[in-house]
C-alpha cells in the first residue's frame, strides 16, 4: 500500500482521504492571492516539523527573503529550518532548473540526494512559458520536471497561475503529466469574496468530490465546510438554489 503524504492543511487531508500518494506530482492551480504559495509552504513546513521529511522550495519570481518574511507571519520559522539543513529555498530561473534536473552532479541534484529530500514545491510552473510557447516543447519540459522529481520518489506541488476554472492550453499539457490537480479560486457570494477549493483529479485514489470553503488564517490555510445550496461555484458567481 502506498504511503500517504499529509499536507498539514486541516480539512484538505480529509478531502484527499489521508493525503497525497507518496511520489505524486500535484498541480495547484489558482489566481494570484488565493494562497497557493502559503499552502505550498505549509506542506513543506508540516513535512519537516511533523514527519521529518526535508523539503525544497524552488521559486522563480518571488525572492526568498520575502517568502521568509511571509512565512514568519504564520509563525513558520523557515530560516531556522534552513540553518538546520531541513529546508532550502532555491531561487533560480526555469532554464537553469531544467538543466539542473538533467545534470546528476548539479547543486540541486546533490542537495536532493545528500539531504534525502522528500517534498518539493515549485512556484510556479507558469514561468516555463518564458522558455517556449511551443506546445510539444512545453510538454517535454513538464515531463522532464515531473520525471526528475518522481525519479527520487519526491512528492511535489507545482503551482500555476490561473483565474479561470479551465486549464489554459499550456497547463493542459501539464494536466496529463501530473497525478493530482487541486484548484483554489475566488467566488462571489452575497457581494463578498469567498474562497473555494476542490480536487479535480487524483490518480490511484478516491477523493472527496465536493467544493469546500477555505480560509487563510494566522496558522495557515484551513479548509472548512462544503458550500451548500449554491450552484455554479466554478463560474465565480454562483446562484442560490431555491429551498425545497
Amino acid at each position: 500500500m502506498t504511503k500517504r503524504v499529509r499536507t498539514g492543511v486541516p480539512g484538505l487531508d480529509e478531502m484527499l482521504h489521508g493525503g497525497f500518494l507518496e511520489g505524486s506530482a500535484v498541480l495547484l492551480q489558482g489566481a494570484p492571492g488565493t494562497g497557493k504559495t502559503t499552502l505550498g509552504l505549509q506542506f513543506l513546513y508540516t513535512g519537516i516539523v511533523e514527519d521529518d521529511e526535508p523539503g525544497l522550495l524552488i521559486t522563480f519570481e518571488e525572492f526568498p527573503y520575502s517568502l521568509l518574511r511571509d512565512a514568519q507571519s504564520h509563525k513558520w520559522d523557515l530560516r531556522a529550518l534552513e540553518e538546520a539543513n531541513k529546508l532550502r529555498i532555491i531561487f533560480t530561473s526555469p532554464n537553469i532548473l531544467l538543466s539542473s534536473l538533467q545534470s546528476p552532479s548539479s547543486p540541486l541534484n546533490r542537495t536532493i540526494m545528500n539531504w534525502g529530500v522528500r517534498r518539493v514545491v515549485l512556484d510556479s510552473v507558469s514561468h516555463f512559458t518564458r522558455i517556449t510557447r511551443d506546445k510539444q516543447r512545453l510538454r517535454d519540459i513538464y515531463t522532464t520536471v515531473v520525471n526528475g522529481l518522481k525519479r527520487e520518489g519526491i512528492t511535489s506541488i507545482l503551482t500555476s497561475e490561473s483565474s479561470t476554472t479551465r486549464l489554459n492550453p499550456e497547463q493542459d499539457k501539464l494536466s496529463y503529466v501530473v497525478d493530482v490537480i487541486l484548484m483554489m479560486r475566488y467566488v462571489e457570494i452575497n457581494s463578498a469574496i469567498d474562497r473555494a477549493l476542490l480536487i479535480l483529479k487524483m490518480r490511484g485514489s478516491a477523493h472527496e468530490q465536493g467544493i469546500r470553503r477555505y480560509e487563510i488564517r494566522p496558522e495557515g490555510v484551513h479548509v472548512t465546510d462544503r458550500f451548500e445550496g449554491l450552484q455554479g461555484l466554478l463560474t465565480g458567481t454562483p446562484i442560490r438554489l431555491p429551498r425545497s
Partner: peptide
Amino acid sequence: ENPNTQDT
C-alpha cells in the same frame, strides 16, 4: 538575502 540562488 537570497543565499540559495542558482542562476546565470
